[in-house]
Design a protein around this nucleic acid. Sequence first.
DNA 1: CACCGTTTTTAGAATTATTCTAAATTTATT
DNA 2: AATAAATTTAGAATAATTCTAAAAACGGTG
Lengths: 125, 125
Amino acid sequence: MTKYGKKILEIVSSSRSHMTAEEIFEALRQTYPAVVLATVYNNLNRLWQEDLIRKVSVEGMPDRYDHIKRHDHLVCKGCGKLVDIDLGDLTAQLEKQAGMAILSYDLKLTYLCEDCQKKMKRKGM
Amino acid sequence: MTKYGKKILEIVSSSRSHMTAEEIFEALRQTYPAVVLATVYNNLNRLWQEDLIRKVSVEGMPDRYDHIKRHDHLVCKGCGKLVDIDLGDLTAQLEKQAGMAILSYDLKLTYLCEDCQKKMKRKGM
DNA sequence: CACCGTTTTTAGAATTATTCTAAATTTATT
DNA sequence: AATAAATTTAGAATAATTCTAAAAACGGTG
């Protein structure tokens, strides 16, 4: 594990805010001002391949990175805001229903966050 | 509903292949050779807002578009290949577990497709 | 149907996210 | 220390998507 890899893993693992590559880059620069964005992508990809971090993609936004501890997500249909939620481990149930072994699963619940609900009302929808 | 919107909805709804905007563009050109890619994006975004089509994003790949009938997905961790699978409607169960109302949910099971399993073996992993 | 306001499309530039390439640097190995 | 292997850098390249302004199409009204 390289020094950048280590620090990036640390940043991603300890954040609960679903950071983009850009944000991770900014955070990493606090410690290593000379680092370059490509290095961040290199390391993120590596860490993801090795299952040390999780990648979360929401339609139409840049990929976000997340700690690996199993949990689910709530995504606002209006603004795309991402929030953690934990519905427990459904692996066994899903494998049974699917009739096959799976490596993991990714569950996103779509809702309308408070802000977006207000906006809807203002527009009379 | 405009003529392009109508045709795009038709293409997306009748395809089972999770087309990208580019592929939809190519398909649409069979009928309307003069159409432009921006029009495809405009319409896809509109149709998506209106819940007439579904958008599927897999980490690191362009967004894909899908018919709206409820179903789940199987994603290969190796190559990103996307396959339909149907685990039934879990809305009630998930709402209960989450303790809130949801608009919809998106469930992706991660696995290794046959091709990728073979590749892994070849590399001795 | 002629006019007017609204919506959609077009063309192409602009932006954003991400990857790639080749050289330089660092790290690990003999 | 010498060599090989992996990582980082810089910056160009690519890919996906959005934006902008102008043109065209559409819908209703008088």
